[in-house]
Design a protein around this nucleic acid. Sequence first.
DNA 1: CTGCATGCAAAGGGTTTGCACCGGC
DNA 2: GCCGGTGCAAACCCTTTGCATGCAG
Lengths: 134, 134
Amino acid sequence: MTIQRRMILDELRASRSHPTADEVYERVKRKLPRISLGTVYRNLEALASQGAIQRLDLAGVQRRFDHAPAPHHHVRCVRCGALEDIILRGSAHPDQLVQDARGFEILDAKLEFLGICPECREPGPPVPRNSHFH
Amino acid sequence: MTIQRRMILDELRASRSHPTADEVYERVKRKLPRISLGTVYRNLEALASQGAIQRLDLAGVQRRFDHAPAPHHHVRCVRCGALEDIILRGSAHPDQLVQDARGFEILDAKLEFLGICPECREPGPPVPRNSHFH
DNA sequence: CTGCATGCAAAGGGTTTGCACCGGC
DNA sequence: GCCGGTGCAAACCCTTTGCATGCAG
């Protein structure tokens, strides 16, 4: 556990926003100005593979990282791209949703909701859209 | 509807495999040797935005394209990366799964299952793993 | 001393874009 | 001729990687 890895983990835990690697990099750089983006990627990867954090590979957008290692689901705002945790009604095994699995052995499911966040629902200046958010 | 766009659409419809853009490119190139990858991307994008086909932005992998414009769900093999359509038990609105939406207005959900495909379940030479497939 | 993690920069893969050209109208 | 769509290549973004250096144990 180097000082870089420590700061990266702290920064991630201090943030609720599921930051991207370069967001983590920008924040950690305030305290460790000589840290490199490569180091951030390497440490995020290492932390994820040891189960301390979670990689979020979401549909069609840049990868994000989650301080919480346990799997859970997310909502993404289709206007501004904001990403938040979401709470589902039940925690049924994905198998229970499947009628015909085409012979696959189902291990897991990735469920991402799309919607409009509270801020974007309010009237106001239009948020610049990004095709990735659809 | 240029000849290029026609061939791209035909090739996609002839394929069940949800090909990537470069796979479409390789296949169409057999009949139109001078077609460029840029043209393939532009036409896939155009076809998708006019609703003739569907872009699949899946979690953590290269984008794929689906000849079927209607939304449906998929299974991805975590070993070989194969992607197939899947049939769910019901067609409940995603809202019904959500207990706390954090103020979001839920519009849609992207649901992707992960599993092992029939081929990869059989004993045999191990399929080279790709970290993207997890 | 040894070795692993770092900083740096370059490479890599997938996708988008600028631009000149072409071909149909 | 006009104009949109093309081919080509370069640019782009995110991510990974090779390498020499440096710090920790």
